[in-house]
Design a protein around this nucleic acid. Sequence first.
DNA 1: TATTGTTATACTCTATAACTATA
DNA 2: TATAGTTATAGAGTATAACAATA
Lengths: 132, 132
Amino acid sequence: MHFGYALRRAQIAAFDAFASATAGHPITPPRYTALVILEANPGISQSALGEVLGTARSGAMMLTNWLVARGLAERRHRPEDARAWGLYLTRRGKTLLGTLKRRVLDHDQRFGAKLTPAERREFLRLLGKLAP
Amino acid sequence: MHFGYALRRAQIAAFDAFASATAGHPITPPRYTALVILEANPGISQSALGEVLGTARSGAMMLTNWLVARGLAERRHRPEDARAWGLYLTRRGKTLLGTLKRRVLDHDQRFGAKLTPAERREFLRLLGKLAP
DNA sequence: TATTGTTATACTCTATAACTATA
DNA sequence: TATAGTTATAGAGTATAACAATA
């Protein structure tokens, strides 16, 4: 069995847990991650968002467009640089993220509950060695 | 740190290893997996291929079309069921898969070499508990 | 009626390239 | 010239729905 396959299978199972947690919302993993990043970095630029997400600028823009169209985030002009936007969660975005975070964390913990506490620690340590 | 994120990061690293192994070939993880499945199950039907891959029939068909268009696989009529095709690797498909398997396995082992042999065994055991 | 393959369609993710406005 | 954002385009993956041929 390849590492790649085994990892992929486990990650698909984790995606399933995420899908259960976000059922009823059109939220995908990248969108959820973007919300989390915006919450932790108010005023971040689109380019910086793309860098953190590990995607191209254009991808960050489409992601931002989607969030803005649904009233979850907003662009604000930066006085010090007319080229860049500052991105912020709206009240609605913060509320949704609050709800989703609880549900995602809950499902994540249930997913991890297949391991004992000691196994969880060891597993996360080994993941850290594989993807530093 | 969520399990989901940690797993995703490690899996992206594994995908990178796969990409290095298949550099120069337009082979993706699902295409590689399909080749492996066809090698192990000569004459398998498209529907069965889709089931093993965990995707819809239509996806298995587009995958098959791609392989057939490049001369890597072929469809043969089944005498016992005029509805279904039997799928087979061509000689060219077998040759390519042979080359790729060596390279993918090599990169997979290099990826896993970030862990000690004992850690590798434990890691695969824990992955098995998470995604049985 | 159920199944196989097929086609059409749609959405998401990702990437590159070219363009604009600004620095 | 370099950067931020934008737009266009493309490929890949995945899914559903409807259809014809066959079982």
